[in-house]
């Protein structure tokens, strides 16, 4: 048979997701965080427990773990459907970035996700704590890239401002099918983003689809998702996860999906880069 027709599920954005890495299994990491609340992550039997200073450890939780490169790990887990944590464990530099995404904390827009970043270091026996940190960055601004998420889905990103990203896609294809209806109802595709430099040619991008939620509310399907992506610009791929909710015909579904996409230089529509961001002064 032609295996291109092999029966397979509908994966959408998660089609090229990599398998989970279990390399951290059996290991414990003491994270010295700059906000003073240190964290211990214990990986056992393909689950982890998460304990913060002066708090009881969590129950054993399932987690995603993908490698950005040979020594950098993207770890994501949910404490509940309203709280998701991402840790970037950078073992080569002994540094950590912690991102907490929370829903239900905005009284006017309960679906809008609040992101909180904290930086720190990984305590390792025999080493002093490093004084350097991962940090917010602008050195990649001006980057335009095409990301292929599946045989059918391709999107094109432009990173032009420090707190925003801009997205487009081809007129035909899975992205148009999924996103055209919503994006025709809002002024532009710019949305909230934050960028953290992990190391040379590695950026952590966290996008929260707030504008759709604020402007459209329940007139659209994707109810403010957060996509957090560890981008390797050396090899031109990114790994990450999406966290949020989807509401279709009144029926809610929680999203916690892993993905991987492959990058290449994009062809962009005329005026895409030059037009103003209508959401900023």
């Amino acid at each position: 048979m032609n295996l291109m027709q092999y029966p397979r599920p509908e994966f959408s954005i998660g089609h090229f997701a990599r398998p989970n890495s279990w390399e951290l299994d059996g290991k414990d990491y003491a994270l010295v965080m700059d906000d003073g609340y240190d964290i211990t992550l214990c990986f056992r039997d393909r689950k982890l427990t998460f304990a913060q200073t002066d708090a009881a450890p969590s129950p054993a939780l399932g987690y995603y773990c993908f490698k950005g490169d040979d020594t950098t790990y993207f770890v994501s887990f949910e404490v509940s459907q309203k709280e998701n944590h991402v840790f970037i464990l950078d073992l080569a530099q002994r540094l950590v970035t912690h991102l907490i995404c929370e829903k239900g904390v905005n009284p006017r827009f309960p679906q809008v996700i609040r992101r909180t970043f904290c930086f720190g270091a990984i305590a390792m026996r025999g080493y002093k704590l490093p004084y350097k940190r991962h940090s917010f960055t602008t050195e990649h601004l001006g980057t335009t890239v095409q990301w292929r998420w599946s045989p059918q889905m391709l999107t094109k990103h432009a990173y032009l401002e420090s707190n925003w990203y801009r997205i487009t896609w081809n007129d035909k294809g899975a992205a148009a099918d999924e996103f055209d209806a919503t994006n025709e109802m809002i002024p532009a595709t710019d949305d909230h983003a934050q960028y953290v430099k992990i190391k040379e040619n590695m950026i952590l991008l966290s996008v929260t689809e707030e504008n759709g939620e604020r402007l459209l509310g329940d007139r659209q399907m994707f109810r403010c998702d957060n996509l957090t992506l560890l981008q390797n610009y050396d090899r031109m791929y990114q790994v990450g996860r999406g966290f949020g909710d989807l509401c279709k015909d009144g029926s809610w579904r929680h999203i916690n999906v892993a993905f991987c996409s492959y990058g290449s230089p994009p062809e962009l529509p005329e005026g895409f880069l030059e037009r103003e961001n209508p959401f900023t002064v």
Binding site: R18, H140, T144, Y233, M236, Y262, G263
Partner: peptide, 19 residues
């Protein structure tokens, strides 16, 4: 700075996953 490139240095091994 635009970080996107076409992977000329890596050729056929460009998209190689981490070990």
């Amino acid at each position: 700075m635009n970080k996107t490139h076409d992977g000329t240095n890596y050729g056929m091994t460009q998209y190689r996953w981490p070990l």
